[in-house]
């Protein structure tokens, strides 16, 4: 079961770069939205023709501002269509439904200093964190890596807002982010938060581990958008029904559309909430989550329908 969704109205849409738009969402009925914590995200419901999508977007406004939420959306033309829908169909005045904020990339309040590393659109959750640290007087540094200034959405306003705490690294200008040297100069008690391409997150973590940073000090945004794939079908053991999963649809979305909802939270393979038992599988489960262990995958008894898919003759779920 989930908390009821919240009705919001899009109050502002701004093109920040050719690929990134910023949206401000305000409560439809006035009043306040729930407060949130830096690193939190919301799931936005989109009725795209016959498909109802739910995409997760990090909140990038100030956690103190409960009059509206701000999200930044990068357009992925090869994605499943959620970001394209946001870019093409959502305008000021559009009504949307969103879930309550949830945080799978939380701040560790014990840190003596917070080091934020962003690559590309990975900047969004780190903006809210920076706002929170600035408000609470906690030491932080924000490093933003992008190809060039034109690709670095929000960089100018971040520099203006947080001044010397913000550092940009543009590879096209020969100033690539050097994780190892940056981490080497950090004081003891620093926590690292990194969000961006897998390569950046892996490099930052590898550098930190090589320097002996404790695992508890390393934080990364885990969830990934579900990928497109080939269509397939699942059978629901309890009702005997068959549910078709389209190429642009996740298994979770298909189950929801078929009226067989599964409890979910991150919708990105991180939290484990939508874990579903597999009763029979004649084919291959295409696991794409970060949640199941190698042993659990090997056993083949569980699947995370938010991101994982199936190829083969038949798949039967305990639903």
């Amino acid at each position: 079961m989930s908390a009821p969704s919240i009705a919001v109205r899009v109050s502002e849409v701004a093109a920040v770069t050719p690929l990134v738009k910023r949206f401000r969402l305000e409560p439809e009925s006035g009043g306040r939205l729930p407060a949130f914590s830096g690193g939190a995200h919301i799931a936005v419901e989109m009725q795209d023709g016959a498909h109802r999508r739910r995409n997760a977007f990090s909140l990038m406004g100030s956690p103190s501002d409960t009059t509206g939420y701000v999200i930044g959306v990068r357009r992925h033309d090869n994605g499943r269509g959620g970001s394209r829908y946001m870019h093409e169909r959502v305008t000021p005045g559009t009504m949307l439904r969103i879930a309550h904020p949830a945080n799978l990339f939380p701040i560790d309040g014990r840190a003596r200093k917070h080091l934020l590393l962003a690559g590309g659109i990975g900047i969004t959750p780190l903006v809210a964190m920076a706002e929170q640290f600035a408000r609470d007087g906690q030491p932080f540094e924000l490093h933003y890596a992008a190809r060039s200034p034109e690709h670095a959405a929000f960089a100018d306003e971040l520099l203006e807002r947080f001044g010397p705490a913000v550092h940009t690294h543009f590879s096209a200008q020969g100033r690539r982010l050097a994780c190892a040297s940056l981490l080497a100069e950090q004081p003891l008690g620093t926590h690292l938060y990194v969000c961006g391409p897998e390569t950046l997150m892996d490099e930052a973590f590898a550098s930190a581990r090589a320097l002996g940073w404790p695992e508890q000090s390393l934080h990364r945004e885990r969830f990934a958008a579900p990928a497109r794939g080939l269509p397939f079908a699942v059978r629901l053991a309890r009702s005997g029904r068959r549910v078709d999963v389209g190429a642009d649809q996740s298994m979770l979305e298909a189950l929801e559309a078929a009226g067989a909802p599964v409890a979910s939270l991150c919708r990105g393979g991180a939290c484990g909430q939508c874990e579903t038992r597999v009763l029979a599988c004649d084919g291959t489960l295409l696991h794409a989550d970060h949640y199941l262990s190698a042993a659990e995958r090997g056993a083949g008894g569980k699947v995370m329908p938010c991101v994982s898919r199936f190829a083969g003759r038949s798949l039967t779920l305990d639903l």
Partner: peptide
């Protein structure tokens, strides 16, 4: 514990 870690806001 698993349940609590996923406890949702507003729920």
């Amino acid at each position: 514990l698993k349940f609590m870690l996923n406890l949702g806001q507003g729920q």
